[in-house]
């Protein structure tokens, strides 16, 4: 008897449930391209935005639609890109890796501070107070806002309070560009190895008073490579549309403001540049 009751009751119940689910399945089904999920799962989930989309899923949607090439995701490994391309049956595309570059080399061993700053420990905070205590109005304040904002651990502050970008880790997401109150970062293709590491608009001794490695606007680099470099607002301007794979411009730089960035992260300065041997901090106010 109990068996029959049970069978009837449970059978009825499941029948009801099944009917409902069938109904729901027919009425409420929304189609979404299943490939989006698959592609999304193949992306790095960094949600960094370097591709120009607000996150990985919108990028995945764009990939599936064919609006984008997988290479636009520079964070992904080469294998990953190929895998997506193979899955979608498209060409992976080629995109030169881009990285963030810093236009200042004035660590506290070479650049002076005119004033002692007290307040919140952030470059953006210090920049609000008379532009900060640093002698050079354009120079890096060294609190490491860029280091903190970088989601990829690509930026580390060196021993002299200047951020160093790890080319391998940098995804060119642009967060450091946005965060730097002195606008010292910019995004460049890795091949841009000839680099001006100074932003001071001052010239001559006015620069050297504040920083030993600043550009004095002597113009020697522009003279040595007249087609490649021109002096604009007391700074050399490199025309990257020309052939810039040459170390000629750095040869005669007296301060080492124009440099060659090696792929291993080292910086090569010209032979005539002043040698910096000081390791300690310049006293505040000293020049």
């Amino acid at each position: 008897m109990t068996i029959i009751t049970a069978l009837l009751a449970l059978g009825g119940l499941t029948l009801l449930l099944a009917l409902m689910l069938i109904l729901a399945n027919k009425k409420l089904y929304v189609y979404e391209d299943p490939r989006i999920d698959v592609v999304e799962s193949m992306l790095p989930h960094a949600n960094c935005g370097a591709c120009g989309y607000p996150g990985c899923r919108p990028f995945a949607e764009a990939l599936v639609k064919g609006d984008m090439s997988p290479a636009k995701c520079t964070v992904n490994s080469e294998d990953g890109r190929q895998a997506i391309a193979a899955y979608l049956g498209v060409d992976a595309g080629a995109e030169e890796k881009r990285v963030a570059r810093l236009a200042c080399a004035g660590g506290f061993n070479v650049a002076i501070n005119r004033a002692k700053y007290a307040g919140i420990s952030s470059c953006r905070g210090e920049a609000l107070i008379s532009g900060g205590g640093k002698g050079c109005s354009w120079g890096c304040l060294g609190h490491g806002d860029c280091e903190k904002v970088c989601d990829f651990d690509a930026i580390t502050m060196n021993a002299f309070g200047i951020p160093v970008v790890d080319e391998a880790k940098c995804t060119a997401c642009g967060d450091c560009v946005e965060v730097c109150p002195k606008d010292l970062f910019s995004i460049h293709p890795v091949s841009h190895r000839l680099w001006v590491a100074c932003k001071s608009l001052e010239a001559g001794d006015a620069v050297l008073e504040d920083c030993e490695v600043g550009c004095t606007a002597c113009g020697k680099c522009a003279m040595d490579a007249p087609n490649l470099i021109s002096m604009v607002q007391n700074l050399p301007l490199i025309d990257y549309s020309k052939n810039h794979q040459t170390k000629t411009p750095i040869q005669r730089c007296p301060t080492g403001a124009i440099v060659w960035l090696e792929s291993d992260g080292n910086v090569t300065k010209g032979p005539e540049s002043k040698k910096i041997i000081r390791k300690g901090r310049l006293r505040v106010g000293e020049s």
Binding site: A6, L7, G11, T14, L15, A18, L21, I22, Y29
Partner: peptide, 26 residues
């Protein structure tokens, strides 16, 4: 496959499981 699963299959599956369950419980 989504929309093409036949309703009949769903019904039999559910009721089948219901019967198994009922038997076990009883």
């Amino acid at each position: 496959s989504t929309a093409d699963t036949s309703s009949k299959k769903m019904l039999t599956a559910m009721v089948g499981i219901g019967v198994i369950c009922a038997l076990l419980i009883v």
